[in-house]
C-alpha cells in the first residue's frame, strides 16, 4: 500500500508560505489516492520555482529546459504509455517560453496532465510580469504598469477543444487534489491551471484576494455542464469579483495513441524492428 511518505524526497527550497507547498501536497495525495507508485510516475518540467517541484516528490524526473517540459513529456509518453506522465511548470514556463508547445500539446492530445502553478508573476527571476499578470501591475521592469493583455489560458484551452480543462486554487488542497485526480484519470491532455499566490512578489493576487473570489463551479445548485463548449467558453471569461474553479470543460476526443495502431500493443520502448522488415525495405530500392 503506497502512502504519502513513499513520495517524500529532498527538502523544497521555496519561500515559506509559498502556494507551491499546497500543490506539492495535493499532488502527493492525488497519486496516493490513484494508487500510483513512484516508479510509475514521470514528472517533466522546465525552469522556474514551480518547475523545481519534481525534485521534491519522489518519482521519475525529467527536469529540462525553460518552456520545454511539455515536449519531453510527450516524447516519453509516446514511447512508454505505461508511465503516468505529468508536466508541471509556472505561467512563465508554460504560457510564455513554452506557449507554442502548450497549444500543440492540446492538439496532439496525448494522455498526459499539465499542472500550471499560475501565480501571475515571475518568481525565480524576482518579480517581473508574466503572461498572466494583471493589466497595470507595477514591477521593476514595468514601472508604469503591465500594458499587455493577460493571457486567458482557460479560454485558450476551451477554444482548442482541450480534452480536459480545470482550474483550482492552491489554498483549497482538497479540491485541488480532486482536480489532479480527475486530470490524471482523463484519457487525453488535461490542463489544470492552479491559482496560486506568490508571497514574495505578487502583492495583488494574494490569498485573501483569492479567498474572497473563488467559488466551486461544480456546486450542485449551479447545474454547470462542462461538456457544453459555448457555455464553457463564456464561463472562461468570468474573472474579477467572482472566479470559478473546478472542471470547466471536457472536450473528450480521440487521443494520439488511439490514432496510432502501433501504440495499441506493448509500449514502443519494448518493441523492436524486425530485420526482415528492414531487408524488405532496402530491397524495395533495388
Amino acid at each position: 500500500m503506497v502512502t504519502q511518505t513513499d513520495f517524500n524526497s529532498i527538502q523544497p527550497a521555496w519561500c515559506p508560505g509559498c502556494g507551491d507547498f499546497g500543490i506539492l501536497n495535493a499532488l502527493k495525495k492525488a497519486l496516493v489516492k490513484l494508487e500510483k507508485k513512484p516508479n510509475q510516475v514521470l514528472l517533466c518540467s522546465g525552469i522556474g520555482q514551480a518547475a523545481k517541484l519534481p525534485h521534491y516528490l519522489k518519482c521519475n524526473v525529467f527536469n529540462g529546459l525553460h518552456g520545454r517540459g511539455l515536449p519531453a513529456a510527450q516524447g516519453a509518453k509516446i514511447v512508454n504509455r505505461d508511465l503516468t506522465v505529468i508536466a508541471v511548470g509556472g505561467d512563465g514556463d508554460m504560457y510564455g517560453e513554452g506557449g507554442n508547445h502548450f497549444i500543440h500539446a492540446m492538439r496532439r492530445n496525448l494522455d498526459i496532465t499539465l499542472l500550471v502553478h499560475d501565480n501571475r508573476i515571475y518568481g525565480l527571476t524576482k518579480g517581473q510580469a508574466s503572461p498572466t499578470s494583471d493589466l497595470g501591475m507595477k514591477t521593476k521592469i514595468q514601472p508604469h504598469g503591465v500594458s499587455n493583455t493577460p493571457l486567458n489560458p482557460i479560454a485558450l484551452a476551451v477554444s482548442q477543444s482541450c480534452s480536459f480543462v480545470a482550474r483550482a486554487y492552491s489554498g483549497n488542497i482538497e479540491h485541488l487534489t480532486e482536480m489532479i485526480q480527475l486530470g490524471i484519470k482523463n484519457k487525453g491532455f488535461s490542463l489544470i491551471d492552479i491559482l496560486q499566490p506568490c508571497v514574495s512578489f505578487n502583492k495583488v493576487n494574494t490569498h485573501a484576494w483569492y479567498k474572497e473570489r473563488v467559488y466551486d463551479i461544480q456546486s450542485q445548485d449551479l447545474h454547470y455542464d462542462p461538456t457544453n463548449m459555448p457555455a464553457a467558453l463564456n464561463k472562461s471569461y468570468e474573472w474579477g469579483k467572482r472566479i470559478p474553479i473546478g472542471v470547466l470543460f471536457e472536450g473528450k476526443r480521440e487521443t494520439f495513441a488511439d490514432h496510432w495502431e502501433v501504440l495499441h500493443g506493448k509500449p514502443l520502448v519494448d518493441q523492436s524492428i524486425p530485420e526482415e522488415a528492414i531487408q524488405d525495405i532496402i530491397n524495395s530500392f533495388l
Binding site: 514521470l42 520545454r68 516524447g75 514511447v79 507554442n100 508547445h101
Partner: peptide
Amino acid sequence: AEDEIAALNMVLGATYAGT
C-alpha cells in the same frame, strides 16, 4: 513537431524513456 525545439525535446523524452 510544432518547431525544431519541440522536435529535439520530444526526442530526448523518448530516449530518456529508453527508445
